[in-house]
């Protein structure tokens, strides 16, 4: 048993169970399509589905990258000026508690049709975990490292660049892993509330025409997209902070 065989067996087992259930209980594809129905739905129009998946991917990645930049900036600013944190953190928490789904139609009103309101929704939905995780990382600098910086008369900038930010990176990545999954959700929510393109729109349209296998094909693509993005972030983490696993082990 190598480290790959177990997850692969798990996935194959789940698919087999699903397939078996549709056969044993005679479930109609309208309610729950079997895996071959979904494959058939994909093979009927692969170009269309992949194009829409590409649209969703573009919105997701654009919003996520924007959220990373914004989140890091906000977190660094809030930890650098404690009075700013005290003044704005309650506002941020309150804003974050607003259901983003409710904001989606408003964003269309404010930003018009097209990809801009979708990207902004992705940003809104995934920026908060990045801010929280980065702030936690930036405020967890060990006392002796803080004192090291002070005893070397490091400037504020130097302390951030050479000590506090690198120290925060493992926690930043914890936030990024949460955020990247939320980013896909944000993109789909935006596409459902403003159908026009993307896998979210495919799901809405297939629902209208009772084409459940097509909806499932879109959902499977979304799951693949989300998994792929998650592991991309994991790979980036291993590349940038190889020491994190070594010291927390």
């Amino acid at each position: 048993m190598n480290r790959w065989s177990q997850p692969i067996l798990g996935v194959l087992g789940a698919i087999a169970l699903w397939w078996g259930a549709t056969r044993v209980f005679g479930i109609r594809p309208l309610f729950l399509p079997a895996p071959p129905d979904i494959v058939a739905a994909f093979r009927a129009q692969p170009g269309y589905l992949l194009r829409e998946a590409g649209a969703t991917l573009t919105v997701t990645v654009a919003g996520f990258v924007l959220a990373v930049v914004t989140g890091l900036f906000v977190a660094v600013s809030l930890t650098a000026w404690r009075s700013l944190e005290r003044a704005t953190l309650p506002v941020l928490v309150a804003l974050n508690s607003v259901p983003k789904v409710a904001v989606a139609p408003l964003l269309v009103v404010w930003l018009g049709f097209g990809s801009r309101p979708k990207i902004v929704l992705v940003l809104l939905i995934c920026v908060f975990p990045i801010v929280v995780a980065t702030m936690a990382g930036l405020t967890s600098t060990p006392a002796e490292l803080g004192e090291l910086g002070r005893s070397l008369s490091a400037t504020g900038w130097q302390t951030y660049l050479k000590i506090r930010l690198p120290w925060a990176l493992p926690q930043v990545f914890t936030g990024l892993k949460v955020a990247v999954s939320l980013a896909v959700i944000g993109a789909v929510v935006a596409e459902i509330s403003q159908p026009g393109g993307g896998l979210g729109a495919v799901i809405v349209l297939s629902g209208m025409s009772f084409d459940t296998p097509l909806a499932f094909a879109a959902i499977v693509l979304l799951a693949l997209l989300s998994t792929m993005l998650f592991y991309l972030v994991v790979a980036l983490e291993r590349l940038l902070v190889p020491w994190s696993r070594a010291i927390s082990g």
Binding site: P142, E144, L145, L148, I163, P166, W243
Partner: peptide, 10 residues
């Protein structure tokens, strides 16, 4: 110099 090495792990 501290009791702990206080080295930067990266």
């Amino acid at each position: 110099m501290h009791q702990l090495p206080a080295l930067l792990p990266w």
